[in-house]
Design a binder for these strands. Structure first.
Lengths: 191, 191
DNA sequence: TAGTTTCGCTACAACTTGTAGCGGATTGGG
DNA sequence: CCCAATCCGCTACAAGTTGTAGCGAAACTA
């Protein structure tokens, strides 16, 4: 048996309000009070749905971040370049600064942590599919170290944005893609 | 003319208390109230010295983080490996998780931002000195792209710890060092 | 109709941050 | 020697955020 059905429209209003406030004010200035106010709801409505601010924001990102493309461009080289460009698009938004705070909060809420991990995995999946296609084509003969590859693609972008606080230029993205490509083709360098 | 001199011992007590609480409870659980209490001082004493919690923690890190070694090991290859190992030592501590929160807070306090940037530059300097030595030796003939190199060394470590939440194994560090080394020796791959 | 769940709303306790202000202590300059 | 300046210890306060509790009313199902 079931009681009064949950108002799905309220979910989307809360997610939209979160996305709006996140992109305008940043993660740190985002409060559940403001989210509820902008959604025309109450703070308790948020607590009934999400375990924390971090969890709410992860779901908002999941719904609003530009996707990582997963199309066969014909060669591993251009596939990787496309994926790098897509990651860069996400990392280039000005409000991404505040996501350091999200990463911090995620570590304190198991629900948010799970949601975040699933999102990260989903967004990383196109890389392994590029590789699967390259293996099919015969461009690659051995399976590369996938976790290392992920760190090698997203890590420099993340570091440059977060620590160096520089823009991601096309030349920079080319360099990162080329390095990742070479590591895949030639394998990890011997010691 | 001068008034009553500042109690330097109080500074060190506050920094020590901060380091102690930071390493035991993490950045997020660190409050100025607790710091003052553990130092046998008052919250206002902290505000009189630092502009924010972030600023206080940056100064504490500066005083306590294991340094990045800057010794001539004889070859660029082993120099890089030593630097990577030192960075990894800092990134491997369990309480480093909370430093995402620090990175977030730093963006909101100009004083803390400046202190953080200076610390990051000081800790990154050994890399450029490795390269200077390699140029002297003739191991390198052209100057590598320094910012890219920094991202290529610290970025994957950071990403693996923060996003992948995996340990930094010796094999992993070898791989990262080898990739950085190859990029330096062979230059950025052509498009 | 009875039972269950959500909804809108108010309220509360606890904590953190940042600032203000006071009397007293300590120092150097005049 | 006195005075101005500065630091110290301490109390107090305003403002904001978090998380939880609870209530009557609405909406749906069996």
């Amino acid at each position: 048996m079931a009681g009064r059905p949950r108002n799905a429209y309220l979910d989307t209003r809360l997610l939209d309000a979160t996305w709006s406030l996140l992109t305008s004010d940043g993660y740190d200035a985002l409060t559940l009070t403001n989210v509820a106010a902008q959604a025309g709801a109450h703070r308790t409505d948020v607590y009934r749905r999400w375990s924390s601010k971090a969890h709410l924001v992860v779901d908002t990102l999941e719904a609003n971040l530009p996707p990582i493309s997963d199309v066969d461009t014909g060669s591993l080289r251009s596939d990787i370049r496309a994926v790098v460009a897509d990651f860069a698009a996400s990392w280039s938004s000005p409000w991404i600064d505040g996501l350091m705070g999200l990463a911090a909060d995620v570590q304190r809420d198991p629900d948010a942590e799970l949601a975040f991990r699933q999102m990260a995995e989903r967004r990383g999946a196109p890389v392994s599919r590029c590789i699967a296609r390259a293996l099919d084509r015969g461009e690659l003969t051995t399976m590369p170290d996938l976790p290392l590859l992920g760190d090698l693609i997203e890590g420099p972008l993340m570091h440059r944005r977060m620590v160096g606080r520089q823009l991601l230029t096309p030349e920079y993205l080319d360099a990162v893609a080329a390095i990742a490509y070479r590591v895949m083709i030639e394998g990890k360098p011997a010691r």
